[in-house]
C-alpha cells in the first residue's frame, strides 16, 4: 500500500477528525460536524449518480425527509432521539424506494426533471401540511442529551456523526466492490446489456435509490439535531447544487472522492466567507474552473498522480483497463439523445 494511498489518507483524516474536538473552537467544531454530515450525503448521491448512473435531483428532498422525520417523530410522538433518528432514516429510505418507480420509465434529463418535480413537491408538502410540518416557520427540535456520557451536546453529536460516517464509508466501500456495486455499474453503462446479463433493472435501480435515500436520511437526522431546528429553506435547490458539486469535485464513482469532495465544498463555502459580497461569483467561478481543469474531480487527479488511489470494482487486483478517466465516466451518453 502506498504511503499516500487512499486508505492511509482517509485514516489520517479520521484520526484528525477524532482529535479535532480537543483543539478547535465551537465554530470550527460546527463546521467539522457539517463536513461529516455532508460526507454522508455525498456518498449516498455518488452511489446513485456515479455508480448506478441515475441523474436524480431529489437528494436534497431526501435529506429534508430525514430531518423532518427525525424531528417530527420527537415533537409529535415524544419519541427519544435514539428512536426517532433511525426511524427518520427508514422513512427516507422508503421514499427513495418509491421514487425509483419513475426511473424505470424515464432516464437522462427526463429523470432529472421528474425527480426535480418530486423535490419541489416535497418542499410544497413541508410548506403546506402545517398541522404536521409546522409550515414555513419550521420547528424547534428537543435538544439531544448524551447523558450519562460526560460530553456536551455538540461534542457528543460530533462523535456520533463521525462514528456513523466511518461505518457507512466502510460499508459503501465494500458495497461498490460487491456484486451489487458491479450490477450498478452495469446498469449505468448500458441497461440493455445489463439486462441481458441477467441483472434485474427494477431491483437494482430501486436498491440504488433506496441506499442513497438511507444515507441522506441519516445525514438529515444528524443535521436536525445539530441545528435543533428544522425548516424548509435548508432543503432547497441550492442544497441540491451543493450535493452535486461535492460528487463532481470529489470524483464521480469514487467513495474516497466523495469524502474529499464533501471536505472541499464545505471548506470552500466557509472559506468564501472571507470574500464578502462576492461569494456567489467566487463559488460559481471556482466550480467552473474546477470542472474545466480537474476532469474527473480530485479522485481522478490523485489516481493519476499518486499511487494507491485506484478504486477497483473487484476485490482482486487492478481492473484490466487502467485508464482512470474511463472508469470514472457514468452513462452520460444515455442522457444525451
Amino acid at each position: 500500500m502506498a504511503l499516500f494511498g487512499r486508505r492511509n489518507i482517509l485514516l489520517a483524516l479520521l484520526l484528525l477528525g477524532a482529535a479535532a474536538p480537543f483543539f478547535v473552537n465551537s465554530y470550527q467544531l460546527f463546521v467539522a460536524n457539517l463536513i461529516v454530515v455532508f460526507v454522508l450525503l455525498s456518498i449516498g448521491l455518488n452511489i446513485l449518480v456515479g455508480y448506478a448512473g441515475q441523474l436524480a435531483f431529489a437528494n436534497a428532498a431526501m435529506f429534508g425527509i430525514g430531518a423532518y422525520g427525525t424531528g417530527l417523530l420527537q415533537v409529535h410522538f415524544g419519541l427519544p432521539f435514539w428512536m426517532a433518528f433511525p426511524l427518520g432514516a427508514v422513512i427516507a429510505t422508503s421514499v427513495g424506494l418509491a421514487i425509483s418507480l419513475p426511473a424505470l420509465r424515464v432516464s437522462g434529463l427526463y429523470l432529472a426533471l421528474s425527480t426535480l418535480a418530486f423535490a419541489e413537491f416535497t418542499r410544497w408538502v413541508f410548506l403546506h401540511w402545517e398541522s404536521v410540518t409546522f409550515g414555513a416557520g419550521g420547528f424547534k427540535t428537543p435538544p439531544v442529551s448524551f447523558e450519562p456520557l460526560p460530553v456536551s451536546k455538540p461534542v457528543g453529536l460530533y462523535y456520533l456523526s463521525l462514528i456513523l460516517a466511518t461505518v457507512l464509508v466502510v460499508l459503501a466501500q465494500n458495497l461498490v466492490r460487491s456484486r451489487i456495486g458491479r450490477a450498478f455499474v452495469a446498469v449505468r453503462d448500458g441497461e440493455v446489456a445489463a439486462e441481458s446479463l441477467g441483472i434485474d433493472l427494477l431491483r437494482y435501480k430501486a436498491l440504488a435509490f433506496g441506499i442513497s435515500g438511507f444515507y441522506a436520511g441519516i445525514a438529515g437526522g444528524l443535521y436536525s439535531a445539530m441545528l435543533n431546528y428544522v425548516s424548509p429553506e435548508g432543503y432547497d435547490l441550492f442544497q441540491m447544487v451543493l450535493h452535486k458539486a461535492m460528487i463532481v469535485v470529489g470524483g464521480i464513482a469514487s467513495i474516497g472522492g466523495s469524502v474529499l469532495g464533501a471536505f472541499a465544498v464545505v471548506a470552500l463555502l466557509e472559506g468564501l466567507r472571507e470574500v464578502k459580497g462576492v461569494q456567489e461569483i467566487a463559488f460559481g467561478a471556482i466550480l467552473v474552473v474546477f470542472i474545466l481543469f480537474m476532469p474527473g474531480g480530485i479522485a481522478a487527479f490523485l489516481r493519476r498522480k499518486v499511487r494507491g488511489w485506484d478504486e477497483p470494482v473487484h476485490r482482486a487486483g487492478p481492473p484490466p483497463n487502467p485508464d482512470p478517466a474511463a472508469a470514472a465516466r457514468p452513462a452520460s451518453e444515455a442522457a444525451r439523445p
Binding site: 449518480v49 447544487v241 452535486k244 464521480i252 461569483i281 466550480l287 467552473v288 470542472i291 452520460s332
Partner: peptide
C-alpha cells in the same frame, strides 16, 4: 467556457458547469 471544453465530460459535470455560470451571472 462551459460547453466546448467539456464535450467529452459526463452530463453532471456539464450541468454543474452551467450552474456555476449561473452563480457568477447572478452575483455580478
Amino acid at each position: 467556457i462551459a460547453f466546448r471544453p467539456l464535450m467529452k465530460a459526463d452530463v453532471i459535470s456539464l450541468v454543474l458547469a452551467t450552474v456555476g455560470i449561473a452563480f457568477v451571472l447572478r452575483g455580478v
